[in-house]
């Protein structure tokens, strides 16, 4: 049930059960169905549905309910008769008056609320992991993105002591340069992260480092925001082009370190 608002679904189900128990009439069922769908579209998902999509769904649903209600003369009479009684019978005079006032008030409130939605800055889509170029140039050296790998990764097997040294150097580089934005624990929540838009990458996220090749991460480190294609909105990102500050070895070392710290491995070469 991930992605749904569970309490709301339970409440709606309970509402339905009450109607069954009370043997509600058709009109009540129709009104309840419409309200339940409205609430479901508006509050039913943890990630809100776009207003326009919700409106389309609700429109279609309304149409379907009207079709249902007017499918036969008998059902139409069944649906409209409570309304007619409400309007005609003197004992309902007070509820009718209340309804006559309440509906316009609701409409007025809705219009007022619509006109007072707080302004928001325009938002734009952004590719989080844009396609990398076929080759990249770092410190004057050309790398083939498809085949380039971390030159120290093999030390893990071949020379664990040397590997540890590279990791330690990566740790130094990270805590001298990266944690202000990417965070002490690499959650993308460093002390400057709240002032940046887009927010820095979260390396704890299993949807980030593990799906990227080491060469992709190297590309992002070495060329930073200025090296992004337009889809990645390079003008907004604060990621520096680290080749300005770091040696090639330091960049590969920090690349090793961020994978190691989070217990992830880069996506293997040629794996798509």
């Amino acid at each position: 049930m991930d992605g749904f608002n569970l309490p709301l679904l339970l409440a709606l189900t309970a509402g339905g059960a009450v109607l069954v128990w009370r043997r509600a009439n058709t009109l009540t069922w129709l009104l309840f169905s419409w309200a339940a769908l409205w609430a479901f579209f508006k509050f039913g998902f943890t990630v809100p549905m776009p207003q326009s999509v919700a409106t389309i769904y609700l429109g279609i649903t309304t149409l379907a309910l009207v079709c249902y209600a007017s499918a036969s003369r008998e059902r139409l009479a069944e649906v409209t008769s409570p309304i007619v009684r409400l309007i005609r019978e003197p004992r309902y005079r007070l509820p009718l008056a209340a309804l006559l006032v309440a509906l316009p008030a609701l409409a007025a409130y809705n219009v007022h609320a619509d006109m007072n939605v707080p302004l928001e800055a325009p938002g734009f889509g952004r590719e989080v992991h844009p396609s990398p170029p076929a080759t990249m140039e770092v410190h004057g050296e050309t790398l083939d993105m498809a085949t380039a790998d971390n030159p120290y990764i093999h030390l893990h097997e071949d020379d664990p002591a040397a590997y540890e040294e590279h990791l330690e150097n990566g740790r130094r580089v990270y805590y001298e340069n990266c944690f202000w934005c990417h965070g002490d624990g690499m959650g993308g929540d460093g002390m400057f992260a709240h002032g940046l838009n887009p927010v820095p990458s979260n390396f704890n996220d299993s949807g980030t480092l593990p799906i990227l090749q080491a060469s992709f991460v190297h590309w992002r480190i070495a060329l930073g925001a200025p090296g992004l294609p337009a889809g990645g909105t390079p003008w907004d990102s604060a990621m520096p082009a680290w080749e300005k500050f770091l040696t090639t070895e330091e960049m590969w070392d920090v690349n090793l370190f961020i994978y190691d710290f989070n217990g992830f491995e880069p996506r293997a070469l040629g794996q798509h």
Binding site: L100, L103, P104, A105, L106, A107, A108, N110, V111, H112, M115, N116
Partner: peptide
């Protein structure tokens, strides 16, 4: 645009 007019319009329309 003042909110009064549209609000009244909506209310009266429904009424």
């Amino acid at each position: 645009q003042a909110a009064t007019l549209p609000v009244l319009r909506a209310a009266f329309l429904v009424l």
